[in-house]
Amino acid sequence: MTAIVNQSVVSVIVEHDKCIADKGCRICIDVCPTDILALDASDGKVRMVYDECWYCLPCQHDCPTGAIRVEIPYLLR
């Protein structure tokens, strides 16, 4: 639930050049169990918006362009 504002260390890292959410892709947003991914209004790409990641990997595995890399949340590393 903790909203992420101006935070650079998130566990779901989206490579903006590869992300095709601006072309209508919603796969990672759809499969995330905790519903923490959303469109960034500024560029139409995906961003992690809630610090509620289970580091489970459906977003990374289901991304059609390989744009997502999941890291272990900082508190657990």
Binding site: M1, P33, T34, D51, E52, C53, W54, C56, P73, L75, L76
Partner: peptide, 13 residues
């Protein structure tokens, strides 16, 4: 013990 609310054994949903 990590303090991370979603760092659970079960799927946190």
């Amino acid at each position: 013990s990590s303090g991370y609310l979603f760092g659970t054994y079960e799927n946190p949903t």
